[in-house]
Computed example of a mutant assay.
Amino acid sequence: MIQQIYITDYLSDAAAQSAAVIEALTAQCPLLLQADWQVMPVAPLTALFQVLQGTEPAAISPVSAVLRARQAWVAPPALCLLPVHLNLQRDTFSLQGTVPLPAHIYAWLTDRLQQHFAQDFIVHAAPEQRFWWIQPLHPVDVQCRWPQDCLYQQAMQWQPQGKDAALIRQWSNEIQMLLHQLASAAEVPDWPLTLNSLWFASVPELPLWQHERQVAGTGAVFDGLRACQLPGLVTRPLADVVADKTVRHALMVADQLQDVDWAALATAMQHGRLPALEIVLPFVERSVRVRYRRRARWQFWRKAQSLPVLLQQLESSLPSARLPAAT
């Protein structure tokens, strides 16, 4: 039986579309409007790794190490490099999210990065074309956080740390100038207007897994967990895990909302086969936890809250960021 579902949003695609995510989820599972919704102070990946590690998560998220585990040819030491959009202001700037790239832009950038930084690091393209793996030619002592942990925060809160932090800032400045040149070049069609920087993220050592649960899932993060031999993995369809009463203390990991078979879950909830469920969703720079419990028959007279009221209540829990409207 599935007890928890984590929508990791590991590339922060859904963080700026929180209202749309909640609207889509409640449309597929209307019973969740009767659940308890609570904003959590940490991002979905942090909440997930806290469960899997059994302790407070480290300052540097292990998600890049988990993703690298799928790529045996990427040898340590390495960094992850992601295309991002920075909100540049007069005195400071903040991270607004990662930027998906058209295939030809990704190939163009891969070639230009390899040429420009040939004396500094080796650039490896990633199969999903959402980031690159970087292998410095010389040891680099630096700690750079994963983008999901830094969304909408002022720059001073997430600057690189360590002996070689200045080197990372130098590379970042060179990259911004390079991107400006490429964006102005007529030979580069369909340049994404939101792309204005590349983000370095550290690749730490893999943590020691200490959880006592079975883990089902789909997507890049789940594949990475499988590659780094997370114990208790269940490679079965979600509908089978939901129906199997012998499965205890199970959780599911998915990259995006649409990766989950919500129809199977909604059916199980409607027929009383899923007495309780906890879902962790991306919610701006944090996450929202949805706790559903099957109601006794005498409680069904209670009216479920409406979606607009729910969104208003959740937005009021965000003092520093407004909830983007659903489209």
Rank of each mutant, 00 (worst) to 15 (best):
L193W: 07
L81A: 00
V188K: 15
W132L: 04
Q157S: 13
A78D: 01
V142A: 09
Q71F: 04
R130T: 08
V215Y: 04
Q210C: 14
A72H: 03
I134S: 03
Q148F: 05
F200A: 00
H211D: 06
H180I: 14
W133H: 05
Q129Y: 05
P207L: 07
H116A: 11
H138C: 10
V188T: 13
Q161M: 14
L113C: 07
H85W: 03
L113K: 04
Q153P: 03
A165F: 11
A166L: 13
Q148A: 07
L208D: 14
A125I: 06
P204R: 06
Q153G: 06
V203I: 12
N173P: 12
P192Q: 08
W191H: 13
E187C: 14
H180D: 11
S197H: 08
Q181I: 06
Y106M: 10
A75W: 03
L86P: 00
P139V: 09
M177W: 15
A75R: 09
I105Q: 02
W146S: 02
D164M: 11
P127C: 05
I168L: 12
V140P: 02
D120T: 10
R169Q: 14
P127K: 06
A186W: 14
I122V: 15
V123I: 13
Q119V: 14
P204H: 03
P160R: 04
Y106A: 01
F131C: 10
V142K: 10
F93W: 13
F121S: 04
L101I: 11
A183S: 11
Q157A: 15
Q154S: 13
L82R: 01
I168N: 07
R112W: 09
P136S: 08
R112N: 05
